[in-house]
Simulated scan of single mutants.
Amino acid sequence: MTRDEKIYFSLLRIGLGTESPREILPELAKLQWGEIYRLAVRQGTGALIWDALRQLHAMEYLPLSLRVQWAYNVEQIEDRYRKQEKVLAGLSKFYASHSISLMLLKGYGLSFCYPCPEHRECGDIDIWLFGRQREADELLCREWGIRIDEDKHHHTVFLIDGIMVENHYDFLNVHAHASNREIEQLLRTYAEIHGETICLKDTEIHLPSPSFNALFLLRHAAAHFAAAEIGMRHIADWGMFILRYCDKIDWTELYATARRMNMHRFLNCINAISINNIGVDAKLFPSFERDLKLEERVLNDILHPEFSEKFPEKGFIRIMRFKFRRWLANRWKHRIVYREGLIHTFFRQVYSHLLKPKSIAH
């Protein structure tokens, strides 16, 4: 790990509130700030590092042009957060008028685990409507004129004011991996457990139970890691979730499921990275087997993905060749995430794409 990367992690811990802001002051004048900025943005943590710099009163160390660029980036993150909040409030109010309850998955709901919620970068809005997904889509289409995209696995997609919403009918793509079916059933059971409720613009929105989130966040990060890559934002989500809900997580049950699905080593790694690099107290985790070599490889892949080719912009053959090369390169990840064999998985994923042909281009 380079010196700049070490400082990046110190800044990240300060931004997350797990490290004192006094410890790295002497190093700030020596940094390659352009590299720090690019790393922070690439990892989905730009606003969190900005929070650390503000706490350190370190803006004077940044070149003026970079300071302006960084401030603008943070402002965009905040604006998108507020826009998501507005869309979510309007959507939940619409559903409530039709007696449809909404549960929010990851994203905005996880932001409340952070010291500054609007600085947790959000992508799209993921929702679960307790089995009324199809009815809700028809209502949106009829009453709001919303176009519904049904070409994705396990959820439909639509846009409201430029914000993408994924309306889940399954939590996982049950066609891509056989083990996803078993996890899906567990998640549906956990989804019935009452979690916290937040009030947004006088409308109630349900958050998942800690049991649901522990398994869903783990599988979601694991699947993204095995398929392509993850960023430190995924690890920050896990670490902040643990900080807030550690006393409500059934670690025995979670590890039993993880071992049954062959993702216990990945779970060990993200726990270790949360401790070593995010600054989460090790006492909040159960004892687990450490594999320093694997932990280092997982962290290095997060920072510098071993497969770094860019996704082709167009061309069916080029896209298929790219996906096959990426699949070959990521075999080691598959072995710490899935219990299925590689050959079985390959043909099952081909079948999955045939069910939704347009998914090949993503």
Rank of each mutant, 00 (worst) to 15 (best):
Y8R: 07
L12S: 02
R13Q: 15
G17T: 06
R22F: 13
L28Q: 04
K30C: 08
K30A: 10
L31T: 11
W33R: 05
R38H: 11
L39G: 05
I49W: 05
R54Q: 15
R54E: 15
E60G: 11
R67V: 00
R67M: 04
Q69L: 14
N73D: 15
E75F: 04
E75G: 13
Q76E: 14
R80W: 04
G90K: 14
G90H: 11
S92P: 05
Y95M: 15
Y95I: 05
G109M: 03
G109L: 02
S111W: 01
F112K: 07
C113W: 02
Y114G: 03
P117K: 01
E118C: 14
H119C: 00
E121G: 00
C122T: 01
D124C: 04
I125D: 00
F130K: 06
G131V: 04
E138N: 08
C141N: 13
C141K: 14
W144H: 06
K152M: 10
H153D: 08
V157I: 07
G162C: 14
I163T: 04
E166I: 11
V174G: 02
H175E: 15
H177C: 03
E182G: 12
Q185I: 01
T189N: 13
A191T: 10
I193T: 11
E196L: 12
I198D: 00
C199R: 12
T203A: 13
E204W: 11
E204S: 14
S211D: 12
S211W: 09
R219H: 14
H220A: 03
A226W: 04
A226S: 13
A226K: 05
A227M: 12
A227Y: 12
E229L: 10
G231W: 00
M232H: 02
G239L: 07
F241Y: 07
Y245C: 12
Y245E: 12
Y245T: 10
C246T: 04
C246G: 03
D250C: 02
Y255G: 00
M261K: 06
M263K: 09
L267K: 02
L267P: 00
S274C: 08
N277Y: 15
N277A: 09
L292Y: 08
K293V: 12
P305E: 00
K310R: 08
E313A: 15
K314S: 15
I319C: 05
W327K: 10
N330I: 01
R335T: 11
R339T: 06
E340P: 05
F347C: 07
F347S: 13
Q349N: 11
Q349D: 09
S352H: 05
S359V: 10
H362K: 11
